[in-house]
Computed example of a mutant assay.
Amino acid sequence: MADASQMSQALAYVCAGILYPDGLEKSSVTGRQAIVRRGWLLPSDIFTAQNIRNYTDFVTVTMAAQKGATVPEPLGRPWQVQARILPTVSVRQSGQSVQVVFPENLPPSGVVGLWYDDGELQTTAAYAVTAQDTAETVASALAKQLLNGTADGAVVSVPGVSVLGNVVGYGESVRVSRRQSQLYRVSVWTADASVRDMIGRSLDTELAEKNWISTLDGRQAQLKFVGVEDVDAMQNQAVYRRDYLYELIFDTLQTQWTADMMFGVGTIDVGGQDSGFGAIAPAPGEDVVKRALEAMASAALSVSAQFEYPGMSLNQFGTVVSSAD
Rank of each mutant, 00 (worst) to 15 (best):
S109G: 11
A151R: 02
V129L: 06
P74R: 08
V98S: 04
M63A: 09
A299I: 04
A139W: 01
V320S: 06
L253Q: 05
A151D: 05
V36N: 03
V29T: 12
G119Y: 07
Q9C: 10
L42Q: 11
F225R: 10
D243H: 14
I85L: 13
Q180G: 05
E294F: 15
S187D: 02
E120Q: 13
R53K: 11
G31P: 09
G227K: 11
Q82S: 11
N166H: 05
D197Q: 12
R38G: 00
S202C: 09
V176C: 08
N54K: 09
L11E: 02
V71Q: 06
G276H: 11
T56F: 07
T56M: 07
M296I: 11
G149P: 02
V89W: 04
G266N: 06
T70G: 08
S202V: 00
T137E: 04
K26E: 14
D152G: 03
V168A: 04
Q220E: 10
E104D: 11
Q235W: 08
D274G: 11
T62C: 10
E229T: 14
Y184W: 04
S302Q: 10
D3V: 04
P284N: 06
D22Y: 15
L24G: 01
R179W: 01
S313G: 12
A141C: 02
N236E: 13
Y240V: 03
F225H: 08
V186I: 14
V81A: 12
